[in-house]
């Protein structure tokens, strides 16, 4: 079992490493066709977005026929748990994004950990974040799987892997209230994941996909610094412990088109019987 995890980990690190070196080989100016911050940050599941929510934006700064990508390290630390995420995304133009994420969720009181891998794709179907009359509309899909399933299974999860699909709409207003640039995003996701999939997929209370609403609103104090909030509705499939919606209040800093740093206060509610899980979130993204 442990050997399997080791091999899985090594394979994963290999994939991320190869992706990162490919991205480094890409010419530096290949991925600079978009304006600062228009690729957003990297959400915990690897898709471009905020922290908790995938947005309609395409990762990085690729526009027209450019390709590029991002590599991200994130951590959420709440009272009894810690989530560590390693993610990478590849993008083509302002059109398509492919992402991978490896999540490790540490149950600090139990000395145990949960692991989830997420592979995602996102396609912009219409509109634009800034230009024209139609907001940017993207569709996305995620394949998620638990690479350690003993605990999810013990608490009543029905399966160790599953698909999700979402539609996201994003729009920026260059000179909104207070003459600041504002960004709004709404995402509808079809999911049956327990705690985003960290505790498996489906349960005794519900085993079908449900539509959940996720949203974000941000304001740019200036073009490299934004503050905002996110909300993520979640299913409640397991009778062993209730699951609650998540929210965050974030600060995102884009010192250049190569780096983004996000800090947030997160409220993850009740997780596996432990109530009021609040804490901080930090994410560092490099773009190529």
């Amino acid at each position: 079992m442990d050997g399997q995890i080791q091999i899985g980990m090594r394979l994963w690190l290999g994939v991320v490493g190869v992706a990162a070196s490919l991205l480094l080989l890409a010419p530096a100016e290949a991925a600079s066709g978009r304006l600062l911050a228009t690729g957003g940050a990297t959400s915990i599941e690897g898709a471009a977005g905020g922290g908790l929510v995938p947005w309609a934006v395409i990762s990085g700064y690729t526009e027209d026929d450019q390709f590029g990508g991002t590599v991200t390290l994130s951590r959420a630390q709440v009272d009894d748990y810690r989530l560590d995420v390693t993610a990478a995304a590849f993008s083509y133009g302002n059109r398509f994004e492919f992402s991978v994420a490896q999540q490790m969720f540490t149950l600090e009181n139990l000395g145990a950990e949960l692991r989830q891998q997420v592979i995602g794709a996102k396609y912009k179907v219409a509109g634009d974040l800034i230009y024209g009359n139609i907001p940017q509309i993207s569709v996305g899909g995620m394949y998620k799987r638990n690479t350690r399933y003993d605990l999810p299974q013990a608490v009543g999860s029905e399966r160790d892997s599953d698909w999700e699909a979402y539609v996201a709409v994003s729009r920026a207003w260059l000179a909104g209230p207070f003459d600041r640039t504002w960004l709004a995003n709404a995402t509808i996701r079809s999911t049956r994941a327990n705690q985003t999939g960290l505790l498996g997929y489906g349960g005794d209370l519900n085993d079908s996909h449900e539509l959940q609403l996720e949203a974000a609103l941000g304001m740019f104090l200036h073009r490299s610094l934004a503050v905002g909030v996110e909300y993520r509705q979640k299913p409640d499939n397991l009778s062993f412990a209730r699951e609650q919606d998540w929210m965050s209040a974030f600060v995102a800093w884009f010192p250049s088109k190569h780096v983004a740093l996000v800090g947030a206060y997160v409220d993850l509610g009740e997780i596996a019987g432990a109530r009021n899980q609040t804490g901080y979130y930090l994410s560092l993204q490099a773009s190529f």
Binding site: G176, P177, F178, W182, A215, L217, M219, V229, Y231, Q244, D245, M247, D267, G269, E270, N276
Partner: peptide, 24 residues
Amino acid sequence: MTSLLKLTSTMLVVSAMAMTLVAV
């Protein structure tokens, strides 16, 4: 319950932000 509270408080913040959109 806290979930409802959380949703309500978020909605309040969002609607306050939306109102400033109209006001300015």
